[in-house]
Amino acid sequence: MTAKPSPARAENDLVARIDAALPQTQCTRCGYPDCLAYARAIAAGAAGINQCPPGGAEGVARLAAITGQAPQPLSTEHGLEGPRSVAFIDEAWCIGCTLCIKACPTDAIVGANKMMHTVVEPYCTGCELCVPVCPVDCIELESASGSSTGWSAWSAPLAQQARERYAQHRVRMPSQDAQDPASGAMDAIETGANNQNNQPHTMPSSSDLAAASAQDPAARKAAIAAVMKRARQRREQGSH
């Protein structure tokens, strides 16, 4: 007689099956820090199966089949189904702050401090995490799948590649500096955004931004929005 798996093993197996059905963009739009965390939340009954915009309607159907839940519409609160996108950096405007490099979950952005960065397209999942951290608004997203959306725009090999690169990224991630929470993050953002590529500039680390956000998320959002607005104005002035 075959022994039944323990509850803990059964839950781990369920988490693995759910995680395998997610596109592994690591975009956080589901409300969780990564796909595995979302899979665990679904398995624990703490999250719905309809919170993954990159997976789209087919993704919801896959999760419904795995969990035994009834299919349901994608939650618009978490985003809309769309094509697979790829990020591109306007290198003429890049100030080399490295914030996008730190934000990328698959290490698809390469570059060095105070030097322009570029996106390695095959590794980009279109997660959009690099867009809001760019202080000069030089990152744009373009469709990489035409009219195909959701899982139709993805494939198992792409998801596996993203999963593996995210795992490698986590291993290489530097430890977060818990000292000096504010660390002048807001001033550093504006300083970096107002400088030209060939001028010295100081940008905050990802831990500085996280700390500033924890202290006052609204102030951080407003500061970044103001910097991005000025960057757009400078672009428009330069094009005339």
Rank of each mutant, 00 (worst) to 15 (best):
A3F: 09
K4V: 09
P7N: 09
P7Q: 11
A8V: 08
N12Y: 06
L14R: 10
V15K: 13
I18W: 00
A20H: 10
L22R: 01
Q24P: 04
Q26S: 07
C30Q: 06
G31T: 00
P33L: 03
C35G: 10
L36C: 01
A39L: 00
I42F: 01
I42A: 01
A43E: 03
A44S: 11
A44K: 13
A44M: 01
A44D: 04
A46D: 05
A47Y: 00
G48T: 02
C52V: 00
P54N: 08
G59T: 04
G59S: 06
V60L: 03
A61G: 05
A61V: 06
R62V: 00
R62A: 03
I66Y: 00
Q69F: 02
P71A: 02
P73S: 07
P73M: 07
E77G: 10
H78N: 14
R84K: 12
S85V: 13
E91D: 09
A92V: 02
I95E: 08
I95K: 14
L99H: 07
L99D: 11
C104H: 13
P105Q: 07
T106A: 08
A108E: 10
I109K: 10
V110S: 13
M115V: 10
M116L: 11
H117F: 04
H117D: 02
V120R: 12
V120A: 02
C124V: 01
T125R: 10
G126E: 01
E128L: 11
V131R: 14
V133N: 14
P135M: 10
P135Q: 12
C138L: 03
E142I: 11
A144D: 06
A144R: 12
G146C: 02
S148I: 00
S148Q: 14
G150S: 09
A153N: 11
W154I: 04
W154L: 08
S155T: 09
S155M: 01
S155R: 09
A156H: 07
P157M: 07
Q160L: 10
Q161Y: 08
E164F: 03
E164D: 15
A167C: 08
A167R: 15
R170T: 05
R170V: 05
P174M: 07
Q176E: 14
Q176I: 14
Q179R: 15
Q179Y: 12
Q179P: 04
D180K: 15
A182G: 11
S183P: 09
S183I: 07
E190L: 13
T191C: 10
G192I: 08
N194I: 06
N195I: 00
N195C: 09
P200R: 01
H201R: 15
S205D: 11
S207C: 02
D208F: 00
S213M: 14
P217F: 02
R220A: 13
K221E: 15
A222P: 00
A223I: 09
I224S: 12
A225P: 05
M228G: 13
R230V: 04
A231K: 03
R235Q: 11
E236T: 13
Q237H: 12
H240T: 13
